[in-house]
């Protein structure tokens, strides 16, 4: 099985590579369209800023490559947000795979609720093969200052300040706001589930 991690100007690509290695999968990190198109599974990771990431993808025409993929695609964190329609982060038009889903900025009512959300929170209302053998209310590791609003395409929800979509699915495209590569055994199970799709 050929697993490709899309290389772009976002952080934490190495962590995804190491996490796959831990479950015995050797992935290729590349920005080559041919390599991405011929993969069995594509992972679109990322920690970073939305507008500069979108600009980078457009300059290399990776935006067109990503939206036309037919095989299972997993967006992680910023990767998931870029698959939405629009992000409030620098007013960025995104890839619109998760049509009409808007990414909004957390607004904290006081200093006791910190932004970004950093740490372990639960995922609920799980509704996808991506969550096979993962119990309701499992803990996952989150680091983010923006969130995808609740939508029909949600396959899990999380609550921080308000309830939001912590995972989304549309056809072959999956997105998770948390970091499976850093979410201990739950995250490993999710990566295995994705590779088994």
């Amino acid at each position: 099985m050929k697993v490709v991690i899309i290389k772009y100007n976002a952080g934490n690509i190495q962590s995804v590579l190491f996490a796959l290695e831990r479950i015995g999968v050797k992935a290729i990190v590349t920005d080559n369209a041919e390599e991405i198109n011929t993969a069995d599974k594509v992972i679109f990771p990322g920690v970073g800023e939305a507008s500069s990431a979108m600009q980078y993808l457009k300059e290399r025409k990776l935006d067109q490559v990503i939206i036309s993929l037919q095989q299972p695609v997993l967006g992680i964190c910023l990767g998931m947000q870029l698959l939405c329609s629009h992000s409030e982060e620098a007013d960025t038009t995104c890839l619109n795979v998760f049509e009409k889903v808007k990414v909004r900025k957390f607004i904290a009512p006081n200093n006791e609720l910190k932004i970004p959300q950093i740490g372990w929170n639960t995922i609920s209302h799980l509704r996808s093969n991506l969550f096979n053998n993962i119990p309701e209310n499992s803990f996952c590791y989150f680091v983010h200052g923006y969130y995808a609003e609740e939508t029909l395409e949600k396959i899990s929800t999380t609550n921080y300040i308000q309830t939001y979509s912590s995972a989304l699915q549309h056809n072959n495209f999956y997105g998770v706001q948390f970091h499976p590569e850093k979410s201990a055994k739950v995250g490993e199970q999710l990566l295995k589930n994705f590779l088994a799709l």
Binding site: F18, E21, R22, Y141, K182, A184, G187
Partner: peptide
């Protein structure tokens, strides 16, 4: 460390 542990 990075190759062995699955938390941040």
């Amino acid at each position: 460390i990075a190759t062995h542990i699955n938390i941040p």
